[in-house]
Design a protein around this nucleic acid. Sequence first.
RNA 1: GGGCGCGUAGCCUAGCCUGGAUAGGGCACCGGGUUCCUAACCCGGCGGUCGAGGGUUCAAAUCCCUCCGCGCCCGCCA
Length: 598
Amino acid sequence: MTASANPSSTSYDPWAPLVDAIVDGLVAAGTAEGLDLAKETVRAALNLDGGAEGDIAFPAHRAAQAAGRKPDDLATVLAAHFPASEGIASTAALGAYVNFRADSARLTESTLSLVLARGASYGEGPRTAASACVEHTSANPTGPFHIGRVRNAIIGDTLARALRASGVPVTTQYYIDDMGRQSAMITWIWSKPRAEWPEAIRQAVDGAETPGEKADRHRGRPYPAVSAYLKEHPEAREEVAELVQSLESGHPPERHRQLAEQILDGMLASLGRLGISFDELVWESDFVRNGSVDRVLERLGASPHAIREENGALAIDTSSYGLPKESTRVVVRRGNGTSLYVTRDIAYHLEKFSRFDRVTDVLGQDHQLHARTLDALLAEIGEARRPSFVIYQDITVPEGGRMSTRGGSAVWLDHLLEEAVARARTEVLARREDLNEAEVERIAEAVATGAVRYHIVRVAPEKPVVFRWEDALSFEGRSGPFVQYSYARASSMLRKGGFERPPYPFDAKLLAGTEEAALVRVLSRFPRAVAYAARTAHVHAIAGYAHDLADQFNRFYHAVPVLKSGTERESRVAIVAAARQTLGNALDLLGVARLETM
RNA sequence: GGGCGCGUAGCCUAGCCUGGAUAGGGCACCGGGUUCCUAACCCGGCGGUCGAGGGUUCAAAUCCCUCCGCGCCCGCCA
């Protein structure tokens, strides 16, 4: 019986040695044939998801063309000359491909050893010194989150987790807009005693409120009515405009930040249920108060592309930056001397650049032009660095159009979670009679939040999403609960067998079945999946991976007895432990709660 | 009008960056599976040629061009 080997600290990916061996072997086989194959070219050509014919495939077309050979012949020759390599069980040419099959026992050995030795850090890459800042969510503190806004938070939070796992020290930031008309509207209405509220606004709020409702709901209630009221009442509009002026000049009313904080607390509490929190909250107004916006304006004013308008406004001609024709004149200071959103955003980004090596902003597609403008203006003031943007598409409603608070089409996160918890509770009660009320609630909460979070993150950010209740509340198939269930199942097996703690000794030779081999292969792919998600910001790949792993684990579960098996029992327990570990790590990356039982 | 994104079976979706062997899943639907480690599960079946057309290439869902459809943006708003 082999004890779990202790892999070197530089070992992160069970496939790395095999890929190296294949590259070296192919180059050597080429040399034997008088061909000069470049290592990196060979490496780049390798198909790591080999398919039915093998684990890794080398398509020989390109190399054949360069050498003036027929692809099929080259593949045959390369396979024939391929040197015997440790870890590679077979090398065979099929058509223009050289197919490599890993030595299953060795792959099992190295994968399980790595997973079990690294535990919670399996999947992570080597630490890097370069730091990163991920700014996401940054919704105006004017009321509760609707699910459209939450897509930003889920993508951003998952990206931050993926980057951390890939070795990058990450700081997450929520940029709070406390400067604009929107936050002014909140302060405007709440600065008046209820009795002095305009009748239309009071009516809209009265009766809608529920006792003890969260601050974001409570303080945000009048917002749609205020918005409508201002359209019809110029004198009120004037009051709000004065308020905006006081905000932008850096002298907000005392209650202003307090109100924003109250609402924000409620908003952050909702995100907290999804496992989302922030390292830093950054207030937009701080950049006005600390003078950094003024310094930005000085630098912009010194630009040869600066345009001074008659009323004192300052604009920048950005026509040389490839922006759409209509947006080549960007105003950065109003006639009244105050700054604009984009100006403050420059100051904010300069501060980020001073603290972090990499700066990433998660933005809705409606901010696409703003992102490009920001890029251009950073160049304009001689800043060499740029943020990278993760742009995601909106969540729309089936009737068409984006979610709108004012149009009444918004689906509130809190409401969605409430529904999801209710449904999850029903599911738990239907299958578990042994749990007390608190346990039922805890599981229902985890299932509900897991379902919602997974449902949003599973789709590529650039794809639009149409919100449908029945999809968001699904606990089956490609869902968060499906992954949670597999994890709980694995946990339950270890618990029942008395295998809660390592070590998990195993003999790879006893794990030679089809389902074991398939499960090992999925397990071994995890580090690559994490690295891919971090590199490309395609965080949905982690959701896809988690589903694949849960799927294969369930097949294994049905096909292979573990606790009831004989000599293989201990080894099969090890593979279950490795699957549980990797499922758990994937759930952690997704911000979906692990459940030991459900 | 211009810019950006999207278009894969009845519905949802992966693959597109880095072109390569019969396009991978899920839902729905049909047929099976529980004296056995959790059936939120598993097995089998049905269904797509990847919006349309053209181009590049030995090879195109993937790269390029045109067109069509959908979404978003084009404020001294944020």
